[in-house]
Write a protein that binds this DNA or RNA. Structure first.
Length: 329
DNA sequence: CATCGATGTTGAG
DNA sequence: TCAACCTCGATGG
């Protein structure tokens, strides 16, 4: 699954295009039929993301909770108002293309609304005028045909969002939502940031578990996944195996602030930009392909960009962990 | 065209 | 600790 930044971007799309409107909710695939019936036709009143969880509030004290899991994704089509706080275009959010970006929101240009040769999977269609109402600019119908397994479809008069492959998609009560929220660690984009920092530092510093595991623990800090974990540990110069209690609190504070920084960049650009210190040719080179965009992630056996040591690949909690044994001590 | 692996979590054993 | 979930781009034949 996309890490925390993508979920915040998706929540912003719902905020802009669905909140305040009556939503037709269905489950073309059928597996969400019961839940869909509970909220079908009601007005969405709020959309929010906390870490990798998204919460959509409907009138009548009903919430839809969605977690994309490893390969879930949302497809948006129809009229899409682009949130000014995020970059261009529209289409599929969540999964990433071969270049490691959110294709829909990649502001590199290729997938923008005005571009040609957009990737096959990108469903870019914006109604241009009354005359073409009911039709999209790519010639497809309205509502869009269901393609493949669509767990949930949410539609306003003009905008459609299809959900596929989620780990969680359930209508819940405010109490159930509170219970989920209570289990989540702080998210730099939710609530008071200084308070979040204090919570993160305190909970990480009291644990004997490796910091590499703590960063991935959604009850310690929300939204970090396997890519950001590896990159943050490299940026902090920290050995992933260091017990949380042995990581100096000032280093933990720097890690929290780094996460806040990286998350904002991710939300703004739709890319997991972790080499933001680079400029000019170095940046262009780093952005050229997904495998060239990170300090250590997906670089097993390659020389460390800083010291030349071979990047190590090991398994930590059944997830691949990449790190530089020389730079991270 | 078949198979693999992935930015994740849950629950069984 | 590991299988299941159930999607799709990448990879190899």
């Amino acid at each position: 699954m996309p890490e925390g930044h993508s979920v915040h971007r998706i929540a912003r799309q719902f905020e802009r295009n669905f909140v305040g409107r009556a939503i037709s909710v269905s489950s073309p695939q059928g597996r969400f039929a019961d839940g869909a019936a509970l909220i079908d036709g009601s007005t969405m009143t709020r959309a929010m993301a906390v870490g990798k969880q998204m919460f959509l509030e409907f009138e009548g004290d009903r919430w839809l909770r969605v977690h994309l899991g490893l390969y879930g994704a949302w497809d948006f089509s129809g009229d899409i108002l682009i949130d000014p706080t995020i970059a261009s275009a529209n289409g599929r959010m969540g999964q990433t293309n071969q270049r490691g970006t959110d294709p829909i929101y990649d502001d590199a240009g290729e997938n923008s609304l005005t571009s040609i040769g957009a990737p096959r999977k990108t469903r870019v269609h914006v109604r241009m005028s009354e005359q073409t109402k009911g039709l999209s600019d790519d010639g497809s119908e309205w509502p869009p045909p269901v393609v493949g397994q669509v767990r949930a479809r949410m539609m306003t008069d003009t905008t459609c969002a299809d959900l596929r492959g989620p780990t969680a998609c359930a209508v819940e009560t405010p109490e159930q939502i509170d219970a989920v929220l209570a289990r989540l660690g702080p998210d730099p984009l939710v609530g008071d940031e200084a308070e979040g920092e204090a919570r993160f530092v305190a909970s990480a510093h009291r644990r004997s578990v490796a910091i590499g595991q703590l960063l991935m623990d959604q009850s310690v800090v929300s939204g970090i996944g396997n890519v950001y974990r590896a990159e943050m540990l490299f940026r902090a110069g920290t050995n992933p195996h260091t017990p949380g209690k042995n990581v100096p609190t000032d280093v933990l504070r720097r890690m929290w602030r780094d996460w806040s920084h990286l998350l904002r960049i991710g939300v703004d650009t739709g890319q997991m930009m972790t080499m933001d210190g680079l400029t000019g040719e170095a940046w262009r080179s780093a952005m050229a392909s997904r495998d060239d965009r990170h300090w250590v992630y997906h670089r097993a056996g390659l020389p460390c960009r800083v010291c030349g040591t071979e990047i190590v690949l090991e398994e930590m909690q059944a997830r691949k962990l990449y790190w530089c044994p020389t730079c991270q001590t």
